[in-house]
Structure formats: structure tokens, C-alpha cells
Design a protein around this nucleic acid. Structure first.
Length: 448
DNA sequence: TACCATT
């Protein structure tokens, strides 16, 4: 079917409304196509504007590349189509350079000329914003690592280009991992959070992962209503949620006994964080450009839950995300997303039904070992990221009006309940560890 | 002082 030396091509700069069937005619003229796949976001399923293409014959790939790569611009795009061997064909990370402190006027060709003396250039692109303005930096990929290294040795800091504020930067480009970290740091900076603790723990807890997956599933369920910009905002909010949920205000505690218990998080004294908690007349919580409160609003009392589970807890992200998506088919899914991505949705949600107190079997969870001060509101906020909450109730002693430190949360679907249990069972809050499990069905353990 | 889109 396909030649053994066939080349898998990466195709970039594709309008996001074009699917495989639309792209096929463009590429079929160079030969029989073995496989053509539009690249979609792992969690949201959103078209990423690029695709993978494998022809049956190696020669077809070479023809397509020379005929199309940088040769033609698809309607609606402001840069020419990219058709070149996929990274998977030949991992390029160790020979790709990031070049910073370029002048704003310099073009791909200018940069190419600067780097040509050091070897064969496989790729050379000045990064530009949506308006085409140079970002003052570029990627340059050489044929070999040694060539790239030679360029660094000679060019890095060697001169200051006209229009640049500092001397030329030439270094290996970020790896995928570094890119992820950088994104996190950017978000953290935007929120005015500088704690290394937030950055270390923020990304990897089971809670934040589950949060992100649930949010992604919700975004996907509603993507039909979203403009690309709104989607971007929603996706960025997921990152923010990841940091904030465990973020800055949390402080790790080393267990005093010699156990292997993972670090727990204690609530920082409220007086230490006035800007975040709205003391002294500050705005209650950090605010996004949209005017929406940042997700720290989830924990207005300053108590941030932290998972007692290992950071490498075996949560299968994809499975969870998809399990969630299957159940988020209508407006009922809305309220969970509302707290994080409200501005993205053009229509306001219907009010959460307050009459129905309990969901179907498998949708109701029992939470024990709640902090004394937690009320309905706190547990609602804690569990709303996992889905449409029908009710959230902390049980209160009739005589004293004090919490009995347990409660129930009901969702409208079992996947949300499962996700909540997965993420929150075993959470340590202060000195307590949440117990989260399915509520016993009413008729359970009742033989008659 | 920035880091493209890669199942």
C-alpha cells in the first residue's frame, strides 16, 4: 500500500475550517494518498490548522513538497502553506535554534544569510504576529547539531542589530517540555504569582489535571458556539486553573514524622495575602482582562485543597476527558464551565435547578472529613469544576448550627461523580484528608 | 528577553 521509504509530511498553515475531504483534492494531484489526518487538539478536538500527510510513494511526497511548500497560500491565511517532512521523520530538536534580538525589519532571507556560513539550513522563519509584524526573533534549523552549535559559538552575543535593544541571542530552541513550563510561567506572571512552589506543584497534581480535562471536555462540548478567540481564552483559563488551584497561597508542609506521606498544604494565614483575598479594599480576587475573577475565587476563604496523592497518580487523562465529553451534550453542562469561561459563551446559562436535590444512582457523592468551616458554598465551589452540580449540601447539627463535617454533592451524570472522586478522595486540607466516595443508593444494605 | 502549528 505504501512504499517502505515513504515520507510522512507535516502540512501547516491550513485554514481551520478545512477537513480531510477538503484537503484531499489539493494533494491528490501529486500522487495517491496513503493517509491524511488533520491534527486536532487532544482534549478539545479543535482543528489545529495543520495536518499529517503520507503518500503511497516517496516520490509523490517530494513532488508535493517542492510544488507547494511556501509556494501557495490557502484562502484566509496570511502565510504560505508548509509542506515538509514531519518532525517524527527526523527529530529536529537538537539542531533547531532560537534567535532573539533581531531587528524588526529583518526578513527570513536576512536571517538565512547570517546563518548560512555555518551549514545547511533546513528551515528559517522569522516569527510574526497576526498582523505580520516581526516579533524580533526567529527559528533556524540546521542539517546537523554540530552546525547549529557552530552558529551559537560564533554568533551568540556577537553584535547588536539595528533596532534591537540588546545583543543577538542564539541558542537551542525550547524543547516541548520547556515550552510547557514557559507557558505556565507566563500565566503565573500575569497573575502576579512568583512562587516557585506554584510552578513546581501547579501542573502535576491529580486535581489540576482532572480540572483541566474536565474544562477541556466542557469547552469541546460547547465549541460549536465558540469563536476561535473565545476558545483561546477558555484554553488559557484551563492553564490558570491549573496553577491557581494549588497555587501560590499554598504552602507545603513536610510531615514531622518520618513517613513517606507526600507534602500536604496548609492554609496560609489570611493576613499574608490581602491582595488576593480582597482585604483592605482591594478587588476581591485577581481579575482577568475579561473582567472575570481568576479561579482563586474558588477558594475565597484561603483554604486550598491539595491532593495527598502522588503527583504521578495514575489518572488517565484522555479517558477521563472523553468520558466527560460523552456526557456533556447539552446546556446542562454549562454551569460547570461558567465559573472559568463564562465570557466565552454568548448565551447565559439556565439557572442550576435547585428543586432536584439528588441525581440518579452513581451521580451522588459523599464527602467526609470536611473542614469545620466549609459550608454548602465551599463544597459547591470545590466540586463544580467536575460537572453540573445539582446540589451541594453540608450537614449541620440542628442544635448548634455547626457543620457535621460531611456532606453530599450530586451531579447530573456519573462521569462527573467519578472524576470528582478520582481527584478529590484523599485530598488533604489543613490537617484533614477528604474521604470522597459514591453515596450509597437509598436501597443499599436494606434487604427488605 | 521574545520560543510556530507536530497525531
Amino acid at each position: 500500500m505504501k512504499e517502505p521509504d515513504a515520507i510522512k509530511l507535516f502540512v501547516g498553515q491550513i485554514p481551520r475550517h478545512l477537513e480531510e475531504k477538503d484537503l484531499k483534492p489539493i494533494f491528490e494531484q501529486f500522487g495517491r494518498i496513503f493517509e491524511l489526518t488533520v491534527i486536532k487538539d487532544k482534549y478539545t478536538g479543535l482543528h489545529k490548522g495543520c495536518a499529517f500527510l503520507t503518500y503511497c510513494a516517496r516520490d509523490s511526497a517530494l513532488k508535493a513538497q517542492s510544488a507547494l511548500h511556501e509556494q501557495k497560500t490557502l484562502p484566509g491565511m496570511n502565510r504560505p502553506i508548509q509542506v515538509k517532512p514531519a518532525d517524527s521523520e527526523n527529530r529536529g530538536e537538537d539542531r533547531k535554534l532560537f534567535v532573539g534580538m533581531l531587528g524588526k525589519q529583518q526578513t527570513d532571507e536576512d536571517v538565512r544569510k547570517m546563518f548560512e556560513p555555518f551549514g545547511t539550513i533546513a528551515e528559517c522563519t522569522v516569527l510574526r504576529g497576526p498582523d505580520g509584524a516581526s516579533k524580533g526573533c526567529a527559528f533556524v534549523k540546521f542539517q546537523t547539531h554540530a552546525e547549529a552549535q557552530a552558529a551559537i559559538s560564533t554568533l551568540h552575543s556577537s553584535r547588536t542589530l539595528p533596532g534591537a535593544s540588546s545583543s543577538l541571542v542564539v541558542k537551542f530552541a525550547d524543547t516541548e517540555k520547556e515550552r510547557g513550563l514557559r507557558r505556565m510561567q507566563q500565566v503565573a506572571t500575569q497573575l502576579g504569582m512568583f512562587s516557585p512552589i506554584a510552578l513546581q506543584f501547579g501542573a502535576y497534581s491529580a486535581y489540576t489535571q482532572a480540572l483541566m480535562q474536565q474544562q477541556a471536555a466542557l469547552v469541546a462540548a460547547h465549541s460549536a458556539y465558540l469563536s476561535p478567540m473565545a476558545t483561546m481564552a477558555a484554553v488559557q483559563m484551563q492553564h490558570m486553573a491549573a496553577i491557581n488551584a494549588n497555587g501560590l497561597i499554598a504552602t507545603p508542609i513536610t510531615p514531622s514524622s518520618g513517613t513517606s506521606t507526600p507534602p500536604a498544604i496548609a492554609a496560609t494565614p489570611v493576613s499574608a495575602i490581602p491582595a488576593v483575598l480582597g482585604i483592605n479594599g482591594y478587588s476581591p480576587v485577581p481579575t482577568q482582562p475579561t473582567g472575570q475573577p481568576a479561579p482563586d475565587a474558588l477558594y475565597p476563604n484561603g483554604v486550598h485543597p491539595y491532593p495527598a496523592q502522588s503527583p504521578a497518580a495514575p489518572v488517565d487523562p484522555l479517558q477521563q476527558a472523553y468520558a466527560g465529553m460523552q456526557h456533556y451534550t447539552g446546556p446542562a453542562a454549562y454551569p460547570a464551565a461558567y465559573s472559568l469561561v463564562a465570557p466565552a459563551f454568548p448565551q447565559p446559562p439556565a439557572l442550576v435547578q435547585q428543586q432536584q436535590r439528588e441525581g440518579p444512582d452513581g451521580c451522588n457523592i459523599f464527602i467526609y472529613h470536611l473542614p469545620q468551616e466549609f459550608t454548602d458554598s465551599e463544597i459547591l465551589q470545590m466540586f463544580v469544576p467536575f460537572g453540573h452540580v445539582i446540589s451541594a449540601k453540608v450537614f449541620v447539627d440542628r442544635a448548634t448550627n455547626q457543620s457535621k463535617c460531611f456532606g453530599f454533592v450530586s451531579f447530573d451524570n456519573p462521569a462527573s461523580a467519578q472524576a470528582a472522586i478520582q481527584a478529590m478522595n484523599g485530598f488533604q486540607i489543613g490537617m484533614k484528608r477528604l474521604k470522597v466516595q459514591l453515596k450509597r443508593p437509598k436501597d443499599a444494605n436494606r434487604p427488605y
